[in-house]
Amino acid sequence: MFKIVEKCTLAPGVHQYEVEAPLVAKGARPGNFVVVRTSETGERIPLTIAGHNRETGTITLVVQEVGKSTMEMGMLEVGDYFKDVAGPLGQATRIEKVGTVVAVAGGIGVAPVLPQIRAHKAIGNHVISIVGARTRDLLVLRDEVEKFSDEVIWATDDGSLGYHGFVSGALEELIGSGQKIDEVIAIGPVRMMQAVADVTRKHNIPTTVSLNAIMVDGTGMCGCCRVTVDGEVKFSCVDGPEFDGHKVDFDELVSRQGFFRDKEQIARERFEADRGGCKCHAK
């Protein structure tokens, strides 16, 4: 049992947790994730470690409610427990001193990007963050982003803050302005990461993306998380989750993410009915 010692709601349906998991905190590195189960009947859900504290033995998780399991997590409060937390899983991010790194984050992708920009800054890279969301209220963790970046470009689809449009557009503009960029990291929805990779491919900028394939065990045992990278099949939980964005078969990933959609909808509807309709997070 893994106790929740802090919780705050960053935006409607987006929660941040501090969870006691000393062994995970001890070994965690940027890019690692954990597999979490909320209850005895729950699914195994992968979540990126958005921060860790070796002294307190806690890790930070940021969860966006998208379906039954994440909604159930949303109902957990301080003092409640996650039934299972296993990790740290996956390969750690390769952090090298390269010069200027642009971190592009879409939506909740900002949480997993934080440990990475922090590490890049610590090693002496110039960090430019481009963070986007649909609208201004959904831009979460803004103080933290400011703190670990040398420059920040905010972007909103509706133009309510910063650049009006997608993060890929903001990146294109930045490159157009003559900014020298040595490396790009992109975390967020698959189509966003694909758009970023399309932009950087034209300019030959090395780009790492973090893939959120469906997982079961997260330890290389089931092969559910397989993705095609450079024509080769990889297990994203052990070979990734980060891969060269110019070589990932994004269409296949999107298709595989949708395989259980019908069942996920049944689970969500049942859950919402049980809890008396979804009042709090109406879109």
């Binding site: 079961v216 296949e252 395989f259 049944i266």
Partner: peptide, 28 residues
């Protein structure tokens, strides 16, 4: 990698460990 292709490990783990045969009482 098409949808509908499982490794036996994935298929059996979903059903046995995660009890997918009792979906939706069990979430997987």
């Amino acid at each position: 990698n098409l949808n509908g292709v499982y490794s036996a490990n994935e298929f059996l783990t979903r059903v046995n460990l995660m009890k997918a045969y009792m979906f939706p009482q069990y979430d997987t």
